[in-house]
Computed example of a mutant assay.
Amino acid sequence: MSEYAHPEVLVDVNWVEDHLQDPRVRLIEADEDVLLYEIGHVPGAVKLDWNVDVQNPLSRDFVDKEGFEQLLSRWGISNDTTVVLYGDKNNWYAAYAFWLFKLYGHEDLRILNGGRAAWEHAGKAYSKEVPTYERTHYQAQEENDQIRAFRDQVLVELKDSDLRLVDVRSPGEYSGELLHMPNYPQEGAQRAGHIPGAKNIPWATGAREDGTFKSADELRKLYEDKGITPENKVVTYCRIGERGAYSWFILTQLLGFTDVRNYDGSWTEWGSLVRSPIER
């Protein structure tokens, strides 16, 4: 994995197995299918439920700084803890969690390359025991707006010739053929299509069949073929930001891009607002 810009953010199954008893390491499972954790998880891992743990119950936003601090303190995480994230479906939500943790400034973050599938393919045992850890006093940083984009910012920056918008949804969503992903009607919008000028690079094209990330050269070509280079300002988006965060991870952590933001309002917001410009 040394080919990547930041190879230290990826660990393999053997590394995880060697650190299962390491008190300086905390494993967090973040799945799209929130029932998988109860079926079995990597021993010692805690569960991040995206529907509960990191959502503001009233506004369309994440928990605030204090809420994030409370969550990590409950999991026994300190500011110097090595946090290893993993999950199902090519680490889709694990990458989303990585972005959120970076939003509040956690330093030492890793992803288990290949996620749950890698653990299973290696024949490693799962546990159903839900661990408990001594509470800590975690202190988060203020939200890092340099990695998050908002609708009004994107609307203004559409006129910026250096901006590159990356729509990471499926081709059907991008073209306007699909209003929302199958089985996700709650994340649809009033209109279908894409933000003007956006290039379509589906998030899943960044992964191999086994769920691990493609090589740096393969990933770089995906973006270069669409005219996107490290010199550009880049904004990724999807429906609600989860797939956008996966591509943000690839661009910033694996390819070394320095100016990338994830627009987590994404199409659920953009496609429903009055006078938001849309292309098909």
Rank of each mutant, 00 (worst) to 15 (best):
G67L: 03
W267V: 02
N113Q: 05
V42H: 04
L158G: 06
D210V: 14
E173G: 09
K89P: 03
T258F: 03
D31S: 05
R110S: 04
A207V: 02
L58I: 15
F150C: 02
I228T: 04
E38F: 10
L165P: 00
K233N: 14
I39F: 12
V156H: 09
K65M: 04
G176C: 07
Y184F: 08
Y246A: 14
E29H: 06
G241F: 02
S272Y: 11
E157L: 09
V52Q: 15
G115R: 03
V260H: 02
L20K: 11
W99R: 05
V235I: 15
V46S: 07
H180A: 09
K102L: 05
G211F: 00
A207I: 03
Q70H: 13
K124M: 08
L10S: 08
R239D: 08
G87F: 00
G206H: 06
K47N: 15
L178I: 10
T252I: 00
A97D: 12
S247C: 10
V25H: 03
E32R: 14
L58M: 12
F213A: 01
G197D: 12
P7E: 02
H106K: 03
V52P: 03
E8S: 13
P131S: 09
E69R: 08
N90I: 01
L72T: 07
Y133W: 11
A204S: 13
D64S: 10
P43I: 07
I77P: 00
A198P: 05
L27Y: 04
V34R: 13
D217V: 13
T212L: 08
W99S: 05
V11Y: 09
G188M: 06
Y223L: 08
A94L: 07
K89Y: 10
D61N: 14
P23I: 10
Y138M: 06
Y133N: 04
Y133V: 10
A117D: 15
R280L: 11
L273Q: 14
V25P: 00
D108W: 06
V34Q: 12
E177V: 14
R110Y: 11
R148W: 03
Y263T: 10
H41M: 02
L158Q: 05
P196H: 12
R148P: 03
E187T: 07
Y104A: 01
G256N: 12
A245T: 09
D18I: 06
D80L: 05
R74Y: 13
